[in-house]
């Protein structure tokens, strides 16, 4: 996040860090005890699912706290329009975890924006561990920035070509104060507060550079995908849980039994 500030702990309890091969690569958000919402481009190009790790309850990438939890990926569902029209639009991924998230004050799900949400006048925030300067500096502390929403017509004008900004996208950025999202923030949430409830309206997706204020950040519009997201969360079975292992404990159990029998027979 360019022009942001470090976030305090537990302020963004739905924030997820997606690691690949041990490094933070993307953001995400908790939408269910088994599901994380992120960007499709974070997971495409035949990346190995086994190499991903997801962290929740984290504000400093180098300092796990007692509420930090680590997860492996069970499966990733990319939105079909991303697979059809890549790289334009549909930049949404649903990530199913191998085990369930334990919710706490520091780890909570965010609400999905409904399809009929009126975005006018909302106070919205983006968060992430992406680059914090045009020179490529990054931050280990989660950054936050309050970003105004930019009407889609204005965003199309700024980008200069009508087809770049599609109906399943929205734009946000503070073009006067140079605040916007950047590389490494992808997949993270754009959230707005309504009646003391935080709704996710966007998923960080793309932009033309980060340091050119006339090109705001472009987000996948969550309300466009909310039915698809809810459907998969409801119908996809939870991952199979490992059964308790009997074999490693068996030899010691047997030896105890044998010892008991021997001692009984000696009486």
């Amino acid at each position: 996040v360019l022009g942001g500030a470090p976030a305090t702990e537990t302020r963004w309890p739905w924030q997820v860090s997606v690691h690949y091969a041990g490094f933070h690569v993307c953001g995400g958000s908790i939408v269910d005890e088994y599901w994380v919402l992120s960007a499709a481009h974070c997971f495409h190009r035949d990346k190995s699912l086994e190499t991903f790790d997801l962290y929740v309850g984290l504000t400093n990438l180098k300092a796990a706290r007692n509420h930090t939890q680590w997860f492996e990926v069970n499966q990733v569902i990319l939105h079909p329009s991303y697979q059809m029209y890549h790289p334009i639009g549909g930049d949404v991924a649903l990530v199913q975890l191998k085990s369930r998230i334990t919710f706490s004050d520091a780890v909570l799900p965010v609400c999905l924006a409904p399809a009929d949400l009126n975005l006018t006048g909302l106070a919205c925030w983006a968060t992430g561990w992406g680059l914090i300067s045009q020179q490529g500096h990054s931050s280990e502390e989660l950054q936050e920035a309050r970003l105004p929403l930019i009407p889609i017509a204005m965003c199309r004008l700024l980008y200069g070509h009508r087809s770049y900004i599609m109906q399943d996208m929205l734009c946000a950025g503070d073009i006067w104060n140079w605040k916007t999202v950047c590389e490494g923030d992808s997949g993270g949430p754009l959230v707005c507060e309504i009646n003391e409830t935080w709704l996710q309206i966007g998923i960080v997706s793309w932009g033309r550079g980060c340091a050119q204020p006339m090109y705001p950040g472009v987000y996948a519009r969550v309300s466009h995908f909310s039915r698809w997201i809810r459907y998969h969360i409801q119908v996809v079975p939870t991952p199979p849980q490992p059964t308790p292992a009997l074999s490693p404990a068996l030899p010691s159990t047997l030896s105890v039994l044998v010892a008991m029998l021997v001692s009984l027979s000696a009486l």
Binding site: T10, W14, E33, D105, P109, T197, Q234, T238, P239, P240
Partner: peptide, 27 residues
């Protein structure tokens, strides 16, 4: 092949928190 256990119902008695609600400050 195993499809996994059936999904538990939404808003079950395990007391899943409401979405989008931060913990009360000082809690």
């Amino acid at each position: 092949w195993v499809r996994g256990p059936p999904k538990s119902p939404r808003n079950s008695s395990r007391g899943d928190p409401a979405c989008g609600r931060r913990a009360v400050p000082g809690k």
